[in-house]
């Protein structure tokens, strides 16, 4: 059985786009390395000349906040998995 997933090719490999969450008008993208499920990270999306770009987040606090938002949105899936 297969499914179609959204991916992005980056310099260090192909990443699955797990989700996009908008927090305080900023869109965050959650990416997981397709070769290693524990290798994930978060980028924010900026608009430049009407095109979307991925940019690193600014601080540890911003990272924690984005992780918390992800946890809040998906914790049910963890409960269902267990």
């Amino acid at each position: 059985m297969e499914e179609e997933v959204k991916v992005i090719e980056l310099d260090d490999g192909t990443y699955v786009v797990d989700d996009e969450i908008t927090i305080n008008n900023t869109k965050y993208v959650y990416l997981t390395n397709e070769a290693d499920v524990m290798d994930f990270y978060i980028q924010k999306v900026i608009l430049k000349d009407n095109e979307e770009y991925l940019e690193g987040i600014d601080s540890d606090e911003e990272f924690d906040m984005a992780m918390q938002a992800f946890l809040n949105k998906h914790k049910q899936e963890l409960d269902d998995f267990e």
Binding site: E4, D18, V37, E52, Y53, G56
Partner: peptide, 30 residues
């Protein structure tokens, strides 16, 4: 996540993967 690399274009495509790939990625993060 805090990498200071130059912004890269957010250009995605779809790819066929084994079932539950995305769910497993989400569960690992959660």
């Amino acid at each position: 996540s805090r990498s200071t690399e130059q912004p890269r274009k957010y250009q995605t495509k779809t790819k066929k993967k084994t079932k539950n790939t995305k769910r497993n990625c989400i569960i690992a993060i959660v």
